[in-house]
Amino acid sequence: MGLFSRNPDSDDDFDGEKTSFLEERGFIASAIVVGAVLICLVVWFMASGRNDTPSANPSQSPSTEAPTGQPTEPTGPPATPVEPTEQPTKTAPPPPNSHTGGCHDRSPAQGIPRLAAPAAVTWQFEGEILVPIQAAAGPAATSPDGVRSCFAHSPTGAVLAAMVVLGQIQNPDVSLDVLRTRVLPGPGRNAAIAAAKEQLKTPPTPDGDVQFAGFKVLYYPPGGAQAIIQVVADLNHKAYGALPITMQWSHGDWYAVLQDDGTFNGSVEPDILSSLNGYVRFSGAS
């Protein structure tokens, strides 16, 4: 199975169509690429018969022009253009390897981000997906192979770790190394590695425009031994797909936990969302 599975017992009228699609793309045998995983959610959404109009790009502001009427003559001299006094500030990306922040911070802030996204974050491409990088919560280490690690033992650190692991898994240049080093050992990791090897034998297929859109911390107990983060991706501006990611604190860092079938969600049905209500908006895409 891929990292994202769907309950085969679901009484969806389009099971036959979905099965055909998944087998055609090699998903059942090998789809560990998170982009393909999320795109299959689009297929479920489209096949379910929903014809929702795609939401407008949030970066576009509503028009403030008045309705067209009779032309009027200007009543005064033209206004003098005003130069902007300051440019929008941008957070400089942290170094790939640092001895401060991330897992090096012995007393990171323990507040759970429920209303506002983590601050001072830069976004960097991992394959086709932008992943969040923060000097305070991590990742604070990058291996020679490009695997990112060393996240803060905090709710924010768990959120960033979940999104970075997902983003790196979809990147064929580092996917195997990420599965071997950023996922806890067990049957699930073995199944995912086997699927990844098969996936790498076939030419990649375009995944479309899929980017992270937000998150919700579902579970973070005192002490932070484990965390469950619901990560949301924007699926080609047609819907949102939500994926539960279980992270466990072990050996001084956050590691992903897979079900025995090699997926993140096992028998838990995927969530298709029409909006981000109830989630923290968090995206590097405009």
Rank of each mutant, 00 (worst) to 15 (best):
S175P: 00
L176W: 05
A135P: 00
G208L: 08
L166V: 12
F215W: 03
A137M: 08
A161Q: 02
A162S: 14
S175Y: 02
P172T: 06
S143R: 00
A195Q: 05
P144T: 11
L176G: 03
L200N: 09
G157I: 09
K201T: 11
P187S: 13
A158S: 05
D207F: 14
Y219W: 11
L176R: 06
A140G: 09
R180F: 05
V159Y: 00
S175R: 11
A162M: 08
G138R: 01
V183E: 06
R189Q: 15
S154G: 05
D145E: 13
H153Y: 05
G208V: 07
A140C: 12
L176N: 06
A136V: 10
L184V: 14
V183F: 11
D209H: 07
M163V: 04
V217Q: 03
T142Q: 11
S149E: 07
R180D: 15
V178K: 03
V178W: 03
K201P: 00
E198K: 14
Y220I: 05
A225G: 11
L184Q: 12
C150S: 10
G138S: 01
A158G: 01
V210P: 01
D207Q: 15
K216T: 13
Q134W: 01
Y219C: 02
G223M: 04
G223Y: 09
V147P: 03
K197S: 12
Q199L: 12
A141G: 00
A213T: 07
G157M: 10
P204C: 10
P204A: 14
K197Q: 15
A192D: 08
V178T: 14
V147I: 14
K216F: 09
L166W: 04
R180H: 06
Q199K: 10
V183L: 12
Q199I: 03
G208Q: 07
Y220M: 06
G208D: 13
V183I: 15
A196I: 10
G223L: 09
F212P: 04
L160H: 00
C150L: 04
A140D: 05
A191S: 14
N190V: 14
G208F: 06
V165M: 08
P221T: 15
V210I: 15
V178H: 04
V178N: 10
Y220P: 01
L184P: 00
N171G: 02
Q170D: 12
A158V: 02
R182V: 12
L184G: 02
K201D: 14
V174C: 10
D207C: 13
T142K: 06
A137P: 01
G214K: 03
R148A: 09
P222F: 09
Q170L: 03
D145N: 04
A137H: 11
Q211G: 09
L218F: 06
K197E: 15
A225Q: 05
P221G: 12
L160E: 01
D207E: 15
A158K: 02
L176E: 14
A136L: 13
T181L: 07
G224A: 07
H153S: 06
S154K: 01
P206D: 13
S154V: 11
K197G: 02
P139E: 05
L184Y: 10
C150Y: 08
Q168S: 06
K216P: 03
G167H: 01
V147R: 03
G223I: 13
A213N: 01
G157Y: 09
R189T: 12
V210C: 04
P172K: 05
F215Q: 05
D145G: 07
N171S: 12
F212N: 07
